[in-house]
């Protein structure tokens, strides 16, 4: 039924440490279908960020294959991978990474400026995205005037405004208190349902677990266990 949009085959990522290969990911086989709400769960250093970065084409595999939206990540050049991220992939980071000189509105609009939307379309989409995350009234604030929860909402709005196929969130709740974490997750769940966006999280936060439809447990670069609801 649901289309497969990510396929990882024997995916490995190794670093040369003191002359010996160190595997951040070792022969991972995984596939994701459209509309998933999945968590990669594991302790620090287990390879979660590496996995998301390869899917997002920020990083490249050292072995195996990563096919994302029918594109082989290893074979993309800089501008092709920029294009893939620009149109189809949204990133959310643990530390928000908002552009400090831009207002909330402009931070969200930035994602659209990289594509060719007209000003009217941009305005419509930005306001809509801010409404999803409940920040319509903060649109003219600068990031340094926002709380952690609000900042992460802006980051979600920025990632979601261009309606990407895939949303990669690297420990999005790690810097938030419980209340904000729950509210962020609810927002993401809502977007997942309404827009059909595929969400892939990395987390080691217990609070996240109950929202996930599918949980992949990673340990030392290997898939240890997988559960589906």
């Amino acid at each position: 039924m649901n289309r497969e949009i990510i396929n990882l085959k024997n995916l490995s990522k190794s670093y040369n440490i003191a002359g010996k290969p160190f595997y951040a990911l070792k022969e991972v086989n995984l596939s994701f279908v459209e509309g998933e709400f999945t968590g990669i769960v594991g302790p620090s250093g287990s390879g979660k960020t590496t996995l998301l970065n390869i899917i997002g084409s920020l990083d490249s595999p050292s072995g195996g294959e990563a096919i994302v939206l029918e594109k082989n990540i290893s074979s993309l050049n800089h501008s092709e991978s920029a294009r893939l991220r620009n149109y189809n992939i949204g990133f959310i980071f643990q530390v928000f990474n908002l552009l400090p000189v831009y207002t909330v509105y402009e931070n969200v609009e930035f994602a659209l400026l990289l594509q060719n939307f007209s000003q009217d379309e941009r305005k419509k989409l930005v306001l809509q995205a801010l409404e999803w995350v409940g920040l319509e009234n903060h649109k003219d604030k600068k990031p340094d005037k926002l709380s952690g929860g609000e900042s992460q909402r802006v980051a979600i709005a920025r990632a979601i405004v261009k309606k990407p196929k895939i949303l990669l969130a690297d420990e999005p709740t790690a810097n938030l208190d419980a209340e904000n974490a729950h509210s962020i997750l609810k927002t993401m769940k809502k977007i997942n349902k309404e827009l059909g966006t595929t969400f892939i999280f990395s987390t080691h936060d217990e609070k996240v677990m109950k929202y996930l439809n599918r949980t992949i447990i990673l340990k030392d670069g290997n898939i240890e266990k997988e559960t589906k609801k």
Partner: peptide, 15 residues
């Protein structure tokens, strides 16, 4: 550098 990384992650080309 984080900002630069973010711009690239958002789909801005390096150029």
């Amino acid at each position: 550098q984080k900002e630069i990384g973010t711009l690239i992650a958002l789909g801005m080309t390096r150029k």
